[in-house]
Amino acid sequence: MKRSTFYSMLIGLILGLILCTAPLLLAAAKVGEPAPAFTATASDGKTYKLADYRGKYVVLEWHNNGCPYVGKQYNSGNMQKLQKQWTSQGVAWFTVLSSAPGKQGFVTASDENAYLAKMQAAPTAALLDPSGEIGHMYDAKTSPQMVVINPQGVVIYDGAIDDKPTTDLADVPGATNYVSLALEQAMAGKPVATPATRPYGCSVKYSDSSH
């Protein structure tokens, strides 16, 4: 074997190893750590960059319109109420759609715009993430998983929307909403008492999902 062939094989092997482990090295979002940067196209046709929202609180809401846990929040009007309440206080609220094409919850931009109008939803924007890139970046497991990012760009909450992991509309009024709690505590300069919870709901329907 020629020496140059050997070296090119070695370099190939090393590159291959680096490339195949790279996705594992990309740490998912963790409470207390910087929120992974992303750029996404929304159903309104505009492009949104997380970096542009430095200085503001940001909420990420994983969404799947066929998931009964999401239905509980929207059919009760609770999610829309939260969106209006917090965006009116300067919070940027992004609904994230990570269902892959052909999977439950996958929508085109016009499908999503019709849904937002019908439900009278009021997020800042609904981000289209059919490749699941943003979802995997944040290790989003379920809809409706919720993430809160502070003005410094640090994740301060990651988990469930509230403390009632059911599909019952009747459970909405008595629930403790973790997103509101995190925003209220952080805005008052207090530490977030419950910064991470199990994000109950339906699994995010990524392209590799089988359930």
Partner: peptide, 9 residues
């Protein structure tokens, strides 16, 4: 164990 590599139920 049910699910995928990233979401395990």
């Amino acid at each position: 164990r049910l699910g995928t590599a990233s979401i395990v139920d």
